[in-house]
């Protein structure tokens, strides 16, 4: 398996608060990797460092090497917009723009000067398993969709740009079980084309969809490996305690 995304000696602090300590982790191409761990362990911080979302926080300090294949993600010569186009993101709470469904998909394409004809929009919506539900209401405000539909729209919006990696930050945490299953099915389907890193609090979810799982605790990676190994035969005692629900 080819390594798609990697972090070497990554350290992140906000002001005086150290959030990530010497992280070394890599994610394989066309695999789903789940990041698990108790709240505040730095899962989301790690995830957001890959598409440079921390650029928006003036007090964030980042050291170490983050790479997309051989590309240094924090190389000053590369525009951050280019990186975010190649590494898409789906957020915890579905955040469609207050625009129509059509415009939500077209937005990213327009600002990147990509074609945004009806076929492109349709393809993205089909890929996100949303087309059949919205094909007659493309002009409807996206905010009228249900929570699950909104999140699939956000996935379609990310997919439309043909990224190489999709980062997902607890995409199902605000959804009901039925919508969650639908999105999990979608994520499993998407790995054929994309590399996916997903933060989740739901351990059943990690077991259902992830090929690899990374367990984090207090800003460090404690264990990583095949999902079945992490959940059935963890090597680290902390991992065992966490997956058994002894803390978290």
């Amino acid at each position: 398996m080819k390594t798609k995304l990697s972090a070497e000696n990554l350290e992140i602090s906000f002001g005086t608060k150290e959030v990530l300590k010497k992280i070394n982790v890599s994610f394989n191409e066309h695999e789903i990797t789940a990041l698990i761990g108790p709240s505040g362990c730095g899962k989301s911080t790690l995830l957001r460092s890959f598409n440079r979302m921390h650029d928006l926080s003036p007090d964030a300090k980042i050291t170490g090497l983050l790479k997309l294949e051989n590309l240094d993600l924090y190389d000053r010569a590369i525009p951050v917009t280019e990186i975010r186009k190649r590494i898409g993101m789906v957020f915890q709470k579905a955040n469609p723009f207050p625009k129509s469904i059509y415009e939500n998909i077209a937005y990213g394409l327009k600002i990147n000067n990509l074609p945004h004809g009806k076929e492109v929009i349709e393809k993205a919506l089909r890929e996100a398993f949303l087309w059949d539900e919205v094909k007659n209401d493309l002009k409807m405000p996206a905010t009228r969709l249900s929570g699950g539909q909104q999140q699939r729209l956000c996935i379609a919006r990310a997919v439309a740009l043909r990224p190489e990696v999709i980062l997902m930050d607890e995409p199902c945490s605000a959804l009901d079980p039925v919508s969650t299953l639908k999105i999990e099915e979608l994520i499993s389907h998407l790995k054929e084309k994309y590399t996916i890193v997903i933060v989740t609090h739901n351990m059943q979810q990690a077991q259902r969809i992830a090929d690899k799982t990374v367990f984090m605790y207090l800003g460090e990676v404690k264990e990583e490996g095949e999902t079945s190994q992490i959940f059935n035969a963890p090597k680290n005692e902390m991992t065992l305690n966490y997956i058994n629900g002894n803390f978290g």
Binding site: N51, E82, N95, Y107, A158
Partner: peptide, 15 residues
């Protein structure tokens, strides 16, 4: 304006 809108926009590569 909710921060999530801005994040969504930056997330698809907007300046």
């Amino acid at each position: 304006v909710p921060k999530t809108y801005k994040e969504a926009s930056y997330g698809v590569g907007a300046t």
